[in-house]
Design a protein around this nucleic acid. Structure first.
Lengths: 207, 207
DNA sequence: AACTAACTTGACGCTACCGTCAACTTGACT
DNA sequence: AGTCAAGTTGACGGTAGCGTCAAGTTAGTT
């Protein structure tokens, strides 16, 4: 099953093609590249649920070719999610892992993740785990999640967030935010950021 | 079009049926009652988007009969929404309109609406305006909305909420909450209520 | 008990998407 | 320039829901 799976990784290399037994024919390699590009654009605009037919026609191929090359939506997501949100997600986690004031780090993490959700619909799908069978997406989210848990714990130890706040509360807040971005018209940046501040102020220790 | 529309209102009265020209035949009146009951149960369990076929079979009729008697989903919603959420919504608004401490009244309103959302999926649809063409639903939500706006304004005058908080922020918070209830597994009551407290604490004036 | 307007419904066509396959086309090697 | 494995695709069948209508059934009247 899933014949050409794995083909998406380094289809051509650069110059010298040794023509390994699993190498793609030139037309197929071209299609892989076009499909990837179309998928990235579509996922960026509409999220990971974009109809495959739409991506196929944007890539100038038929829907069946996506199945041939990537094995379906899961495989296609796996092939582009790193480029789409992986780098950003990692940089957010890195930044939050830097030494510094626990509250600042948590606030930065929340703000950065909310910003990513605002800019990138595909990131919303990652956080909502809308396609949990995709290994890449799962890994991506585990990364963010582990970081969030650590930050909440450290903030607790420093006493800078209310005692009854749990890591899951943080996750649910991000989920609710993602659902709003997914299902409602995008708020203006001003409004969105202000609401982010309300969230952060709500989790500090009682006055 | 929509032949039997309006039939849902007082189909039988009580005893003396004067057989007005628009009166329903006995079998039709029975079906109306069964459909209403099935719709109330279904909407309560699954929200206003429950497939009509499901409601029809629960009522022991065919889907087409719902169209005959109520003119479709809109009409069906109109026929039961009052019983489903109207009374509760009005009581929440009443309670919030009582004289008293502005903060207490706002907090009560938020808590009550969140509680209603938790208990009644149909109320979530009302707040999300998932079926905006339904006059009843619209009226219901206008009621709640107007009350919310007034409460926020009064709280501002009393200086008990942060100056940058808007009525729309309140609405968006309730929407995000409704979306979470709609699209994710229901949290436990403890967790849900705690998160409601975070929300309220986040909108008080800065420490 | 015959009549007929009111009523019900199975079956249909429609939308929008998914995933598959037999038949065709073509790149690459000889 | 011939061969054929690799590759592509149009067309299909499946899911899940909506809204409609011709044909059949029945309540209520005479």
């Amino acid at each position: 099953m899933t014949p050409g799976a794995g083909a998406a990784s380094t289809p051509g290399g650069s110059g010298s093609a040794a023509r390994s037994p699993t190498a793609l024919r030139a037309d197929a390699a071209r299609n892989v590249a076009q499909i990837r590009a179309a998928a990235i654009a579509a996922f960026h605009g509409r999220g990971l649920g974009t109809p495959l037919e739409e991506i196929a026609s944007a890539a100038g191929v038929s829907k069946a070719t996506i199945y041939n090359r990537f094995g379906g939506r899961q495989g296609l997501i796996d092939a582009v999610i790193e480029e789409l949100v992986g780098a950003e997600m990692r940089s957010i986690v890195d930044r939050a892992g830097q030494p510094g004031d626990p509250w600042e780090r948590l606030a930065t993490y929340v703000t950065d993740l909310r910003d990513l959700q605002y800019r990138e619909p595909a990131a919303v799908d990652v956080i909502l785990m809308a396609y949990p069978r995709s290994a890449q997406v799962n890994a991506q989210w585990q990364l963010g999640r582990a970081s969030g848990i650590a930050l909440v714990e450290q903030a607790h130890q420093a006493g800078v967030i209310r005692a009854d706040f749990t890591p899951d509360d943080l996750y649910q807040a991000l989920v609710a935010n993602g659902l709003a971005l997914r299902h409602r018209p995008k708020p203006g940046r001003q409004d969105y950021d202000r609401r982010g501040r309300f969230l952060l102020d709500g989790i500090r220790p009682h006055r």
